[in-house]
Amino acid sequence: MASQGTKRSYEQMETDGERQNATEIRASVGKMIDGIGRFYIQMCTELKLSDYEGRLIQNSLTIERMVLSAFDERRNKYLEEHPSAGKDPKKTGGPIYKRVDRKWMRELVLYDKEEIRRIWRQANNGDDATAGLTHMMIWHSNLNDTTYQRTRALVRTGMDPRMCSLMQGSTLPRRSGAAGAAVKGVGTMVMELIRMIKRGINDRNFWRGENGRKTRSAYERMCNILKGKFQTAAQRAMMDQVRESRNPGNAEIEDLIFLARSALILRGSVAHKSCLPACVYGPAVASGYDFEKEGYSLVGIDPFKLLQNSQVYSLIRPNENPAHKSQLVWMACNSAAFEDLRVLSFIRGTKVSPRGKLSTRGVQIASNENMDAMESSTLELRSRYWAIRTRSGGNTNQQRASAGQISVQPAFSVQRNLPFDKPTIMAAFTGNTEGRTSDMRAEIIRMMEGAKPEEMSFQGRGVFELSDERAANPIVPSFDMSNEGSYFFGDNAEEYDN
């Protein structure tokens, strides 16, 4: 993207840094990872977990959730003011799984939030270390993106479920800051804005008074975040219109849905970061690795190297396929839920299948599930090659597409044709070009129609051997075009429920 120079890199967003050079960025990201790792080690000690239990991804998720809940100030305040039966607002906890007599047992633990905050700050040299908290939120978000298709949420806001490739980060909490905003897809931002506008339509006082002023500035800020994701002048001009509207209503909703559809071809720039579970960072720190000293990046080879040398386990339900569970977590670790499966298959070195073909449910185990038949197995999170994460949407291309997802959002900077089903997408653009945004709409449609099938995206960008740390010898991959490109292809993934 041309304006790259004016933006802070995501590592800076990730670490609240002012302008830093590459070495400083690597050190501050490393410091953040160190903090998460030290916190995780301490929690495993508190909970008396064995090494194996500490490497269980379900335990990692519970521990991450506990610290996120302990620092969720708004919710904590709300819980104190609106006490609900049987919930102690000062405590947080969740299921911890232990191996007892050759069987997995679930144990519900409860801790004072104050105590968890103390352990977290102690692991982070006394700081609140917001960057580390956001990092864990993005890992949870990436896992949700890989596990669930947001059909219901899309339909509720009037969008087409086939636009799911635009929904990265749709389950990120509001408090995820600049680093969170960077990884949100165009569809996620559109959905947040539509929800806001709908509230304004239904509630006369939404934009009024002292609160209304705050609401208005939040609305304009979200519009600017979305505008910054678009790469064409016409899309940005249309966002200006939406932002400046005196009284946002149905016309703005129409414009936003139009823009979301246009992003299936004229893709937005959305950041991709490899955020790993805390149970990967903990053992690495415990083994003596100093992330701050060595430096770390979320968008280069580092996460690949770390996963190459990590042992992570997962509980497996009786009829689940461990290899499929591994694929789910591998995609989440690489922030690749909406990437082209052919690119992923090449990088991973084994075939990556669409969601609907995987015999696996989510990673988390519900409290009512029976533990008797639970097994555990090693997650295979290694890769054959590594590639640089991208934040450009890439230019655009036609490809055989599917009944489910009709476009992709690249996660890796790797040369390819970008699949999208042009006739299906263009069919949504018939007729409606009147109104105050008509010239911009016409211009956007013209650009979409001009998108050429034979153009290559990320020209000359390749993948790298894991021994090639400096990215000196790019390998331009070859793809098996007979395979499906979309992950949520004609899909039956479970729906995400809060």
Rank of each mutant, 00 (worst) to 15 (best):
M159Y: 04
Y496L: 08
S353N: 02
T15M: 03
Y313K: 01
A153W: 07
G462I: 00
S69E: 07
K422N: 13
R216P: 06
L61S: 13
Q58G: 08
S402K: 14
L344S: 13
T134F: 08
Q364H: 10
A373R: 14
A403N: 10
R355L: 15
R384L: 04
Q415K: 14
Q409G: 06
V285S: 11
Y289P: 02
T378Q: 06
T147L: 04
F291R: 04
G35D: 02
Q231W: 01
I301G: 09
V285M: 15
P477V: 00
T378A: 14
M159Q: 07
A153N: 04
K113R: 10
V299P: 05
Q168E: 04
G209N: 14
C223H: 09
I316D: 05
M32A: 01
R26Y: 09
F71H: 09
Y219K: 04
G450V: 06
M374K: 10
A233C: 00
G356I: 09
S438F: 01
V408I: 07
R400P: 11
M440P: 02
E375V: 08
E192F: 09
R317C: 07
V343H: 00
P423I: 05
E53V: 03
E494L: 08
G295N: 07
P410D: 00
W330R: 04
E11G: 08
A373S: 15
T45E: 04
G5F: 00
R441D: 09
E53L: 04
A332T: 14
H82T: 10
S482E: 10
M374Y: 10
F39H: 02
G288W: 04
N124Y: 14
G132Q: 11
I25T: 00
S478P: 10
S457L: 15
K293Q: 11
N321C: 03
E484P: 15
D203V: 04
E252A: 10
I444V: 14
K87Y: 10
T433S: 09
Q231I: 12
S269V: 07
R216A: 09
L315C: 13
R174T: 12
N250R: 03
R355D: 10
T360A: 11
G37M: 10
N319M: 01
I25L: 06
G93C: 02
I96S: 10
L110I: 13
T378H: 03
M105T: 10
G132C: 07
G362P: 05
K77G: 13
Q364I: 10
V186A: 03
D101T: 15
L172Q: 14
Q311H: 07
S345F: 08
